[in-house]
Design a binder for these strands. Structure first.
Lengths: 226, 226
DNA sequence: GCCAGAATAACGGTATACCGTTAACTTCGG
DNA sequence: CCGAAGTTAACGGTATACCGTTATTCTGGC
């Protein structure tokens, strides 16, 4: 055993490709092809696919196959509804339970995001969210929001992100509310921070053509060489 | 292929056993033993375990093994925090989006729960929640709450359920708020309905001895016959 | 040229078998 | 009798191989 199971490597690799939109919604995932490319057998690959399916990043039609999960405007609306509720909860709990060290770490995230640009800032902002959820001290919430944030990051890769300046300002306000322990205000700001990206992301989703999983997983024969 | 994959059967069977507390927290799940008992190979069984792990019902230590997920008092607190947020959201959305047929189905659930007793009532009450979430029209919410409600049902099997009369009354009030489309009140009642069971369930969880997954997945040798 | 039926490729589902690691049991020297 | 080294059972990780279903392509008759 080389430390981490090959299954975890496959899972991480495919997840990255899906989140970063290298694989678009509806993209067919053929087990034998992927196994060959990732240089492993189908067994660990299939286990990775099961995990991705549980995270909602792929859809498996029993006996047919697996595709990258399609995204409809309704899916996006649903995602924002749930995010609002959970980010609000996370912000409130963080305000109520944050320790001094936690507050310091969160402040660092705010400042780092302000100082950098581009992809680095996207990561810094993601760190802020991770830190905030960690501060909430709720492992289940961290888990659920982690899965959801993967979907959100995918959306942003598919549609483009919101104005960075605005988001940084919102993070700063959120930090302030948490720092002074104002749970109600933190929750409100957390909800609004989510709501901000809502309309434009749903609108962007209108453009995507729907994918029928049944149809997308049809057996297709490769064109013959000679 | 006999219609549904054997993996799904294994997943459903194990899930039932865990939720109904036939397998207690910390119970070791040995792949070869389960595969033999369920009369399938380890391949579909392992895939079922991956799904259960993603649902948080089992914990897998890489290279060591899998146990039924332990439950700490903090886990229970976390669960109720998240449930409050999501049941509140579900109730609000249901009130805002419910159709006449949906309202009718929900009312049926309320009445059926009032008319039956015992295990049948527990099922009827679960149906009410399922129907309510369905009414919310949010597939992601239904998915997340579905996973969470499995954990909650497990807790109730481990600790015992709350007073049935009270819960039916709360369901009825919730139904009324949804029927008249009062989202704010529905959300409030939904949250309170969750909060009701909170303290006593957390208290009950204090009794459970913690399980260290690392330690619980140690390779053990079976006692020899002769 | 067109359609029915046969041949076959594609691909998911699953059994079998082997490997490596870990820990329990055994054995042997002191 | 005890502790160290050797032996083997237990068990998760994974490769290989086969099966069955589905759909494409081929083929012969009209």
């Amino acid at each position: 055993m080389s430390g981490t199971p090959r299954r975890d490597h496959a899972h991480a690799t495919l997840k990255r490709r899906i989140v970063e939109a290298a694989y678009l919604p509806g993209h067919r995932l053929v087990e034998r092809d992927l196994a060959e490319e990732l240089d492993l057998s189908r067994i660990p690959l299939r286990e990775a696919l099961r995990q991705l399916a549980a995270e909602g990043l792929v859809v498996t039609v029993p006996g047919k196959g697996t595709i990258v999960a399609p995204v409809t405007p309704d899916d996006v609306r649903d995602l924002f509804d749930v995010r609002e509720a959970l980010e609000g909860l996370a912000a409130r709990l963080a305000a109520e339970r944050a320790t001094d060290e936690g507050r310091a770490r969160l402040r660092e995230c705010v400042e780092r995001a302000r100082d950098v640009r581009g992809a680095e800032q996207i990561n810094a902002r993601a760190d802020f969210h991770d830190e905030l959820v960690a501060l909430s001290g709720n492992a289940l919430l961290a888990d659920v929001l982690g899965g959801i944030s993967a979907r959100v990051r995918r959306l942003f890769h598919l549609t483009g992100d919101r104005d960075a300046e605005v988001q940084c300002a919102e993070h700063e306000a959120l930090y302030e509310a948490i720092a002074v322990g104002d749970g109600v205000r933190a929750a409100e700001l957390g909800v609004r921070h989510v709501t901000g990206g809502r309309a434009e992301t749903i609108a962007a989703a209108e453009a995507w053509t729907g994918v029928d999983p049944e149809e997308a997983t049809r057996t297709r024969r490769r064109r013959r060489a000679g």
